[in-house]
Each structure stands twice: as structure tokens, then as C-alpha cells.
Amino acid sequence: MAEDSGQEKTEEPTPKRLQDAKDKGDVARSKELATTVLLLASAAAALMFGGQVADAMSGMMEYNFKLDRQAVFDSNLMFTHLGNSLREAFASVALFFLIMLVAAIVGPLGLGGWNLSLKAMAPKFSRLDPLAGLKRMFSLKALLELFKALAKFLLIGSLSFLVLIGSKHALFALGAQDVMPAMSAAVELVIWAFLIMSSTLILIALIDVPFQIYDYTKKLKMTLQEVKDEMKNTEGKPEVKGRIRQLQREISQRKMMSAIPEADVVITNPTHYAVALKYNQAGGGAPMLVAKGADFIALKIREVANEYDIPVLSSPALARAIYHSTELEEEIPTGLFKAVAEVLAYVFQLKRHQQRQGPAPRELGGDMDIPEEYRKDE
């Protein structure tokens, strides 16, 4: 939809976009980095174990070619020599190939990390499309790969020529040496030349890695509309979230209204605010707020209170203080204990008087003892 509107992809990919691409097996990779790590590891392994491998191979050849007359005519000895030779060859190159294996695994993980994706392993018949294949062959990315291959060829070729020129005296000296010393010197020359030429790929990798990161990020960039659509899908559409909040408020209000018949008193503003308090005399705790509301909700609280004969008292300052300082199903703060105690004492004495069990209570004073930090202006 964003592409149809002609919007440019100017926004950085979101974490969700990156994770979705990773789940599909699409992560930034650098073939040059993997190749460089593998070649450098091969050269280092050859330097460390090349001499041992050469000695082992030389001993194996001597073992197989220096045979006495009886061994030559013994056909069973052929299999013994073969088994010993294979075992010796494997033991001599085991560490070398182990280093190669580790490098082959670690190299690709240098950029993009470990990523096992079943979606990437699933067969895609679209890759068999010859037109798509031709399109990839003549794409800008293929052209860049061609230039990169030419740059590697020129760089390695030039360095190889310089290494050859620099080693010409050592190469000419091989002809004047005995066979074994000449072979050892030749192997050492080849290994060092291989290490030097492999090191040139570090330059290619240093250029290719940032380019692959840039190209990968550019490919996953998003339009502003795509970002908005993703936020809607992730967090929910605003109208749906609004409807959910409305339903939650309605449920909360119904629960609150059902708790009003159990209240001991409703304190009002008298019209803007209304709070309903319940005090459990047996429990010994502080009075609890079971309902509160402003404007229309305050009117409903008063209506329910009148319906169930809950005393409704007007104390604007106290009603505002409780409304702003206390949440539903919480005890009132200690600073309001004295004022609420006066109200409850009046209510309980009024109930006893109505039951003809005591004298009529005195009217509550208009100025309640409310600390300044709890006072709220109208």
C-alpha cells in the first residue's frame, strides 16, 4: 500500500521488521569476511602444522616404498600398509582440518550471527524461474559483485607478482640445494606467500562488511505509512483500544456501583464529587473507599445511596480530599482519619437514634479538620 502511494522508504527498520527478516533467514552476510577468515586460518594452520604434516607424509612414503623382497611378494601385507598409511595420514592432518572446520563455522557468523531458519531451508520454486534468474544476473547487485571480483583479482594478482619478484633469489637458490632441504624451503616459501596473499583480503573484507550492513539496512527501510501500519498491528488500532478502554470503564463502574449498598456513608461536594466509605468495625482497619466519581458518576452514586438508604452527607472539602487522595478499594490516608472519624461517628449515632437506641447526634460542623496537603480547590 505504501509503494502504491509513492512514498519513499526513509524510515529505519523497526525491531519487528528486523526480527521478521531474521525469521525468514534474511540477515546481513559478507562472503568476503567468511572467505578471509577461512584463508587466514588455513595459512596459520599451515604455518603451525605444515612441518609436521610434511614430515609425516615423508615418513609414510618411505614406509611404503622401502620394502624388502619378502614384503613385496606378500599380498596380505598390502592391506596392512594401506591401513597404517591411512591412519598416519589422518592423524597428521586432523588438527589442520579441525582448525579449518572451526574457521568455516565462525567466519559466516562474524556478521549476522547464528540464525537457524526453517523458512529459509524450505524449497522455493520461484528460484527456478529463468526470467528471475536473468534479472538477478543483470541486476545492480550482480554488477557490484563483478567489480568486486575484478578488484580482488587485480589486488591479489599484483601482490602475487610482487611476492614472486621479492622471492626470486630464494627460488633460484632451490636448484642448488639437495632434495629434502629444497622441498622444505619450497614449502615454507609457498606457505608464507599464501599467508601474505590471504592477508590482502582483509582490505576487501573491511570494505565489504560496512557495505553489506548498509545494503541490508537500506533493503529493509520502511515508509512512514508502513511504520504506522506496523504500530497499529502491534499495539492495536486506536478505535479498538478505545472500545476496550470503554468496556473496562463500564465493568469497573458496574462493580463499583454494586459495592455502594455495603457502604456506611456517602460524602458529596454536594454535586460535583461523591465518595462512598465502608468501615469494618470488627476488623479494626481504616475506612475503605468503595466508590467515587465526579459529575454524572457522582449523581449515580447518590441515586444508588438513596435507593438503599445509605446516609448522604455534604462535606465539599472532605469529599474533594478523599476523591483526589484515595483509589478504589484502598484505605483512606492517615491525614484524613480525624475528619472521617467525625463523619462515621455521626452516621453510627444517627443510625442508633433512628432505631431509638440513643439521642440524636449533633449536626456536623461545616469546617472539617483537613490538613492543607489534602485540600483541593473547587
Rank of each mutant, 00 (worst) to 15 (best):
F73S: 04
D20R: 12
L39K: 07
N84C: 09
V312T: 05
L299Y: 12
F337Y: 14
K141N: 11
I156E: 04
D55K: 11
F296Q: 11
K168H: 09
L67Y: 04
K9W: 10
N306R: 15
S167E: 10
L150S: 05
A193R: 05
A294K: 15
K300T: 05
I99M: 12
V290T: 13
Q52K: 08
S92K: 01
V93N: 09
L195Q: 06
A103G: 07
K16D: 14
T223C: 07
T268Y: 00
A276S: 11
V209H: 01
R249M: 12
R254K: 14
G366P: 02
K124M: 14
D68S: 13
G6K: 10
F153R: 00
I204A: 08
E331I: 00
I191W: 06
W114F: 15
I196E: 04
A149I: 02
L150Y: 05
A21L: 10
L159I: 09
Q7F: 15
G366N: 03
E32Q: 13
K168A: 09
V187K: 03
F65K: 00
T234K: 07
V265F: 09
A54E: 05
G284D: 12
E145D: 12
A305T: 03
L336I: 01
L109A: 05
Q354T: 06
Q349Y: 13
M197C: 15
V72N: 01
L95H: 12
A104L: 10
I165R: 12
K292S: 03
G284T: 07
P359Q: 12
Q212N: 02
E226P: 15
K300H: 10
K292P: 01
A170H: 13
G133C: 08
F161G: 03
G175Y: 13
A263W: 06
E235H: 12
L344N: 06
V102A: 14
T200I: 02
A360M: 13
I260H: 08
L128H: 08
K300L: 10
K9G: 02
T223A: 03
A193Y: 04
T271Y: 04
P181V: 13
E8R: 09
F194D: 07
V27Q: 03
P210E: 03
E307G: 08
F153A: 08
A282C: 00
D264R: 01
